[in-house]
Nucleic acid binder design. Structure first.
Lengths: 186, 186
DNA sequence: GTATCCATGTAACCAGTTACATGATTGC
DNA sequence: GCAATCATGTAACTGGTTACATGGATAC
C-alpha cells in the first residue's frame, strides 16, 4: 500500500468549505477539526504549491493596503474529483502510539504516587476536553438557527465522537484510580 | 521542546519485562501492546544498536544449531535509570490525526449510503477489538493464578482502557447511524 | 513599548514506512 | 512442494516538526 499524502486531502476538504489562504486554512484546522486532525504551516504552504502545480487548486493574489498580501486558494473541479474519490475509500488505520498507555504499562518502575498523579491529570485533561466539545456542540447548534450550513449534522457527529471518548476516558480514570488505591490499602 | 526518540523508551520498557532479540521484542509488541503502541523492524534494529553504543543495553550472541544466531539484548542499570526518568515525566500528546473522522467531516461530498457503510464498518471493527480485549483480560487474569507477574494490575488497566474506548465507539456508531437514518426519512 | 495577529515561506532534521536482501527450518 | 516462522539487517523515501527569517498593523 503506497503511502498517500493525507495533508493534501485535508487541505482540499477545508477548501470545499471556504476558499482561503494557507493562514486561513490553518485557523480553520485549529478551530474546527483540531481534536481529530492537525496541520502546520510547514506542511500547508508547500502542499498548496504542489497542488497548484497539479491543477487541484487555483491561486489568486489578494492585495491589501496595510496588510501583507494574501494568496487565496480555491479548489478546482479536478481537486473536487480527487477529494471525492479519496472520501469514498475506507479510512486507513494509522498504527496506534499512545504515550500515556505506554507509561502506564511500565509504571511498576515508578512510585505509585506518580502514576496516580498521571491518571488524575489525564482525567482533568478529558474533563476540559469535554467542556470544549460541549461548547462546540452548542455553537454548532446555534449556527443552525442563523446560517444553517449543510454540514451541521456531520460536524455534530464528529464532535459527539470526541464527547463519547472523553466521557469513556473519564470513567476509565475513575475506575482505575479506585482499583489502584485499593491495592495500596491491601 | 526537543523531539525525543520514543522508540528507545518502548524498547527499554520491553527489555525490563524480558531480555531478548529484536525479533522477540517485535513479537512482544505485536502481542501485548499493539493496541496502543507499535514498532517495526526497521526502527528496532538500528535503535538497539544505538542504545548498545550508549551503554543502555548489553548484547550477547546466542548460537543455535540449525537456526539463525540471535542477538540477545538486556537492559543495563544505565538503561533502567534512563527509562525511569522518562516514565516519571508527564506523557506528551501527539497531535491527533484520525482519518475516519476527517472523512466523516467532509462526507457531504459523498453518497450518504457510503458514509453509513463506513460507520457500520467502524462499529464492526470496534466490536472485534472489544472481543480481543476481553480475551486478553481473561488471559491476563488466568496468568495471575499460575505465574502471577507483578504487572498484572497495570496491564489489566491498559486493556480496560481499550475496552472503555471500544465500547464508547460502538455506542457512538449506533447513535450516529440512528441520527443519520432519521435525516434520510425527513 | 510590548505582545499578538496577520501573512508567507525555507532549511535542517528526525521519525517512520516500504521494499529489498538472505537463508535455513518446520509444519502442512 | 509451499507457506510460514525464525532472524537480522540496509537503502530509499516520505512525512512531519522545529527553528529561523521577515515585517507591518493593531490592541493593551
Amino acid at each position: 500500500m503506497p503511502k498517500v499524502n493525507k495533508t493534501k486531502y485535508a487541505l482540499l476538504g477545508v477548501l470545499t468549505v471556504m476558499p482561503g489562504s494557507g493562514y486561513d486554512i490553518k485557523k480553520f484546522c485549529d478551530y474546527s477539526i483540531s481534536h481529530f486532525w492537525n496541520e502546520n504551516y510547514a506542511r500547508i504552504y508547500p502542499v498548496l504549491k504542489e497542488m497548484e502545480r497539479e491543477g487541484l487548486v487555483d491561486k489568486s493574489v489578494e492585495q491589501n493596503e496595510g496588510r501583507p498580501q494574501k494568496n487565496i486558494y480555491s479548489i478546482t473541479p479536478l481537486g473536487e474529483a480527487e477529494l471525492e474519490q479519496w472520501l469514498l475509500e475506507p479510512a486507513e488505520e494509522t498504527p496506534a502510539r499512545c504515550e500515556f498507555l505506554l507509561k502506564l504499562f511500565f509504571a511498576d518502575r515508578i512510585p505509585r504516587e506518580n502514576l496516580l498523579q498521571k491518571i488524575a491529570a489525564e482525567k482533568l485533561k478529558n474533563e476540559k476536553l469535554l467542556e470544549v466539545y460541549n461548547q462546540k456542540a452548542e455553537h454548532l447548534a446555534q449556527s443552525a438557527e442563523t446560517n444553517s450550513h449543510k454540514n451541521l449534522q456531520l460536524w455534530l457527529a464528529a464532535v459527539n465522537y470526541g464527547r463519547c471518548n472523553a466521557q469513556a476516558s473519564i470513567r476509565w480514570c475513575d475506575e482505575t484510580l479506585e482499583s489502584l488505591k485499593e491495592e495500596i490499602i491491601l
